[in-house]
Design a protein around this nucleic acid. Structure first.
Length: 210
DNA sequence: AACAAGGTGCAGTATAGACA
DNA sequence: TGTCTATACTGCACCTTGTT
């Protein structure tokens, strides 16, 4: 049976009166005072009991406990709200990272394909005499990383330039994706990885083609 | 300065009542 | 009936005040 704090006699020494439910009017008065000042001094609580007829049926100790629990509830709600916001951000970040991962995997497979192409070109070059009619070989122009093959007599400096341009192109296109937009500490690791890949490509080209 | 006593807040927990 | 919420309680830490 619900016991309401409507009279002092109802909260006496009996177990039945131990637990009370405050009336909506009492809650409203307490909430109003809470928003006025979440931390009431004991003096202020005694004053409230005298001033507010609705609260006069609640003992100062109970008012103290109510304020204590009310602060606790607010803290819990704020924490729950904060955790929900964090969860939303992490979910969005995870989605971006998954997309970025998928895109990078596709690039890796494409680079592996191109690497095979360079190997084949190198083998052909070693077996036959140079053929200037093949200077402008076109690779799949749809991809982000599709450097134009340099003429086989291109200088190392020119190849470095192409590698740098390719990297710059990728990074410029990467801007606005998870790499830049999320601004996570450590995301620059991707750039380091891409730089490493570019240098590897340059190394392969230089080794087999120059 | 050192100590005890009292008051208070907070975290954690028990429990009664509401509700689907 | 199980779960959720509100109220009450406990133990601990910290602060203030009075006493020696």
């Amino acid at each position: 049976m619900m016991v309401v704090a409507s009279c002092k006699e109802g909260k006496g020494g009996t177990d039945q009166g131990k637990y009370v439910r405050y009336t909506p009017e009492q809650i409203e008065a307490l909430e109003r005072l809470y928003h006025e000042c979440p931390k009431q001094s004991s003096l202020r609580r005694q004053q409230l009991v005298r001033e507010c007829p609705i609260l006069s049926y609640i003992e100062p100790k109970q008012i103290k406990v109510w304020f204590q629990n009310r602060r606790c509830r607010e803290k819990q709600r704020k924490e729950a709200s904060r955790l929900q916001a964090v969860n939303r951000k992490l979910t969005a970040m995870n989605k971006l990272l998954m997309e970025e991962n998928d895109r990078l995997q596709k690039q890796v497979s494409h680079l592996v394909h191109e690497n095979g192409y360079f190997h084949q070109q190198a083998r052909n070059a070693s077996l036959t005499t140079p053929d200037t009619s093949c200077d402008s070989v076109v690779t799949s122009g749809q991809h982000l990383l599709t450097p134009q093959l340099p003429p086989r007599d291109a200088s190392p400096a020119g190849l470095v330039s192409i590698a740098e341009e390719t990297l710059a192109e990728f990074l410029s296109k990467a801007t606005g994706t998870a790499v830049e937009w999320v601004q996570m500490p450590g995301m620059k690791v991707w750039k380091h990885l891409l730089l490493w890949i570019s240098l590897k490509i340059y190394g392969i080209v230089y080794k087999y083609y120059v």
